[in-house]
């Protein structure tokens, strides 16, 4: 296949960037999207140009490093996959593909297609944990039974890979799906109860501070989430936050 690529190039965080056109031949339909970019980069290096910088690591859809806004959608046209799991057979010979970084004030561009998602880390640091020391001297794992339904729902929320596709797809660049997934995981488990109120208050406060937008329930995040995290989690967080606001001292 031959493809026309329009890729966002930006030298550094403070530089201004622009879309640049590239042509690439001999793309195999069995390549992953990132392997296609590898081939492009080989081409650029051999011509003496600078290769395109993008985040990636595990290339099996679990680390959450790869991002990319491809043809108008985070992680491209597929559903339930990350960019590294997108294969070129989703495209046709002669297609034009727009490749941009995830856009949000809270995700500043580092270089080209690479963005800084440390805002997510800071949100987790504000309360995304259970305050238990790692001494191993806790109670036996089976001392507190957990309803299977709740354990399963907590797991589903916990499968978030922190890629930021929810933010990228949201018209408001809201991080509600990400934050609510973590809040939900702990609010569904008995271990998360003692700090439930502080957790949700602090995490929402940090989320606002980072400059993410609000949720307007468009549901775009749920559709684009590679792990299929449900919008239900956002409602659960709204409930938790309301409860906490009304009943905290």
């Amino acid at each position: 296949m031959k493809l026309n690529l329009k890729i966002w190039r930006q030298k550094g965080p403070n530089a201004s960037g622009k879309m640049v056109d590239y042509q690439i031949d001999e793309v195999s339909p069995d390549m992953s999207f990132l392997e296609m970019l590898d081939v492009l980069n080989e081409q650029l290096i051999s011509k003496g140009d600078e290769p395109v910088v993008f985040d990636h690591d595990c290339r099996e859809g679990i680390c959450g490093a790869c991002s990319l806004h491809i043809n108008g959608e985070p992680h491209g046209p597929g559903r339930g996959i990350t960019t590294c799991q997108l294969h070129m057979r989703s495209f046709k010979d002669g297609d034009t593909i727009y490749i941009e970084p995830f856009r949000a004030k809270a995700f500043p561009v580092v270089k080209d297609l690479m963005v800084d998602r440390s805002a997510f880390d800071r949100i987790i640091q504000s309360g995304g944990y259970v305050s238990v020391n790692t001494s191993g001297n806790t109670i036996d794992a089976n001392a507190t039974p957990v309803r299977k339904e709740n354990a399963d729902a907590a797991f589903d929320a916990a499968t978030c890979i922190g890629c930021g596709a929810c933010v990228a797809s949201c018209k408001n660049a809201s991080a509600m799906l990400f934050v609510s997934a973590k809040v939900s995981q702990f609010s569904l488990l008995p271990q998360g109860q003692p700090e439930a109120k502080e957790r949700v208050m602090n995490m929402v406060s940090q989320m606002d501070e980072e400059g993410f937008g609000n949720c307007t329930n468009t549901g775009a995040c749920e559709v684009e989430c590679p792990k299929g995290i449900s919008l239900e989690n956002i409602a659960r967080m709204n409930r938790e936050y309301l409860k906490a606001s009304l009943t905290s001292k």
Partner: peptide, 24 residues
């Protein structure tokens, strides 16, 4: 120490698979 790991992780809110009785 393997047994402590499970206790520790459960206390941290790691959602391991459970049976209908609520146990691991």
């Amino acid at each position: 120490v393997s047994a402590n790991i499970i206790d520790q992780c459960v206390a941290q809110g790691v959602p391991f698979a459970r049976e209908y009785g609520g146990l691991l």
